[in-house]
Design a binder for these strands. Structure first.
Length: 526
RNA sequence: GGGCGCGUAGCUCAACGGCAGAGCAGUGGCCUUUUAAGCCAUUGGUUCAGAGUUCGAAUCUCUGCGCGCUCACCA
């Protein structure tokens, strides 16, 4: 099908001839481009500049239902996207969807005349945006519907959206047929996914509500929201590989931050006593159902508090968010019923690992001894022989304890050598005041009483440097400016970090981080 | 990065060594209260890409690409 001489489509942008234009579009798209031409030939603007709308779909329906008994007329202008069309001779039905929901449109030759109805049936498609003016009424089968007296195209759709159809079964459940389901397509073309899967839009509305609730909670407790650099001359605050980039004018390599920690704690030095940030972290590591290279993190730092106070604030905050977004403390995640009502269970890490693995790591003060114990007790397991004591403990944690932590649990008191920014427990140099919150078997948050002794901190950086000497990429760089800040004096404080994506997964019962990210990282196409 | 699996029409999926199909969407027709509207007719394919085995490949083998699951990595 060749474009006619008065074709208005922009195939000049290809800078090529007719043949390439033909290859650029699918047969369905070519048909729609022809319709576009016909519309324009008929003097109809396919992309008008302005639209009118008096009501959202739900408002129009509600207003009609309120006035239905006394028979008052409800005249409205609705605007939305065509999701279904049913032409039947001299009448037609369609459903449009707007920001609030769907509403049915009813077209009749009586009001519109044959030509206008034919125009609608022939040249309008699923996916087009339209504006429709008329009077609300109820059809024979009971659906509140707009009786259209006039309509107008607002934007023509060239590429066909998946024409998903909702079937309502006798028991009321809705089955969607031919919905866009391919996970790759849904993620790559999130715009199409959002357009045809309303529950995806709902997921992201709820995500926004979760972030809003976190802010409300912290704001109301005197925390100041701040923004610290994403582009940093030096990365730190976590053990992760960074993304490296380059500033041309400064001729200097820069890193995308892997955490906010060191900058937020600088603010405590500056007498900002309660600070938090919600923003993006970047970690140049593997991608999985719970890892995306960029992810949203919440961190707060609270002067004069310790990790026990942070624990209390955490359970209050998470339950507040659940209550405010879902209206309940009881959530479902996969097959689990989870109760977020505070207080949460508190379990000392040593105790938890002893109970689930039969190994008391306190009896094994060196990596060698702990490694031997694991090999003897669990011969089929193969921990890394080069692992530090802390990493072996972490291994036991994820192997034995983590899967059992379904109901919200604070696991506390961590080995010092995997926690270089946390403060030791008085009288116990091997253990730090740190906890992680676990729900549904995965780590939700991580917090500790922050190390505020600049000399100890310098020592820890040096130790980390040694531990990672063999692996440059994971080496924890010495942040001299951070130490300089600490030397001015940092108040004792409790700090906290939580993955907002993971919290969203938990609260919304989504089992992949991609379901809660609008545009997850994907390999480039082709 | 390793292992396993998947990739067929715009969407959802069949065909599993022997003519590449269905439903929806699309196109033409009938139909003035339908709603997965219905009925009649009909269009649409580089079976992800490339190579190989075979008389014959969507199907078997290899390579590549992409995605999913899983393991590793990830305080």
């Amino acid at each position: 099908m060749a474009p006619s001489p008065n074709f208005h489509g922009n195939w000049g942008r290809l800078g090529v001839g007719l043949e390439d234009w033909m290859a650029e579009y699918t047969s369905l798209e070519k048909i729609r481009l022809q319709k576009l031409e016909e519309l324009r030939a008929a003097g109809i603007e396919a992309y008008p500049t302005r639209a009118r709308r008096s009501h959202l779909s739900v408002e129009a329906i509600a207003e009609f239902e309120a006035k239905e008994k006394e028979g008052g007329e409800v005249r409205v202008i609705l605007a939305g996207r065509i999701r279904a069309m049913r032409a039947m001779g001299k009448i037609s039905f369609a459903h449009i969807e707007d920001g609030a929901g769907k509403v049915q449109l009813f077209f009749r030759t009586n009001e519109l005349g044959k030509e206008r109805l034919d125009l609608f049936n022939r040249l309008f498609d699923i996916g087009d945006f339209i504006e429709a003016e008329g009077v609300m009424f109820r059809t024979k089968s009971g659906e509140v519907t707009l009786h259209v007296h006039d309509f107008k195209l607002l934007a023509k759709s060239i590429s066909p959206l998946p024409a998903a159809k909702d079937e309502t079964l006798p028991d009321g459940t809705v089955v969607r047929h031919a919905a866009l389901e391919d996970p790759e397509l849904r993620a790559r073309q999130r715009y199409a996914d959002l357009a045809v899967n309303p529950e995806v839009r709902e997921t992201f509305r709820k995500r926004a509500a979760i972030v809003r609730a976190l802010r409300e909670f912290l704001d109301s407790r005197g925390f100041l929201e701040v923004e610290t650099p994403i582009l940093q001359p030096l990365y730190g605050g976590a053990a992760a590989r960074p993304f490296v980039t380059h500033h041309n004018e400064l001729d200097q390599d820069m890193y995308l931050r892997i955490s906010f920690e060191l900058y937020l704690k600088r603010l405590l030095v500056g007498n900002l006593e309660r600070v938090y940030e919600i923003g993006r972290d970047f970690r140049n590591e593997g991608v999985s159902f719970k890892h995306n290279p960029e992810f949203t993190q919440l961190e707060f730092y609270w002067a004069y508090a310790d990790y026990l106070q942070v624990m209390e604030l955490t359970e209050q905050m998470v339950s507040y968010v659940a209550q405010s977004v879902l209206g309940t403390y009881k959530i479902r995640f996969k097959e689990h019923e989870i109760d977020l009502t505070p207080p949460w269970r508190r379990l000392e890490m040593r105790q938890g690992i002893l109970e689930t693995s039969g190994i008391d790591f306190a009896q094994h003060p060196t990596a060698e001894s702990l490694f031997q114990a694991i090999r003897e007790k669990h011969p089929r397991l193969t921990p890394d022989p080069k692992a530090t004591r802390g990493k072996l403990i972490d291994f036991l944690l994820s192997e034995f304890l983590e899967p059992t932590l379904i109901q919200p649990t604070f696991l506390y008191n961590y080995p010092r050598d995997i926690s270089p920014l946390a403060k030791s427990i008085p009288g116990d140099p091997l253990t730090v005041e740190r906890f992680e919150g676990y729900v549904a078997g995965f780590e939700l948050c991580n917090a500790f009483t922050e190390l505020n002794d600049p000399l100890d901190q310098e020592q820890r950086f040096l130790e980390m440097g040694r531990d990672y000497a063999a692996d440059d990429e994971e080496k924890h760089p010495m942040d001299e400016d951070y130490l300089r800040a600490m030397r001015y004096g940092m108040p004792p404080n409790g700090g906290f970090g939580m993955g907002v994506d993971r919290l969203t997964m938990l609260l919304l019962d989504k089992h992949s981080i991609r379901e809660v990210l609008l545009f997850p990282a994907l390999r480039k196409e082709e």
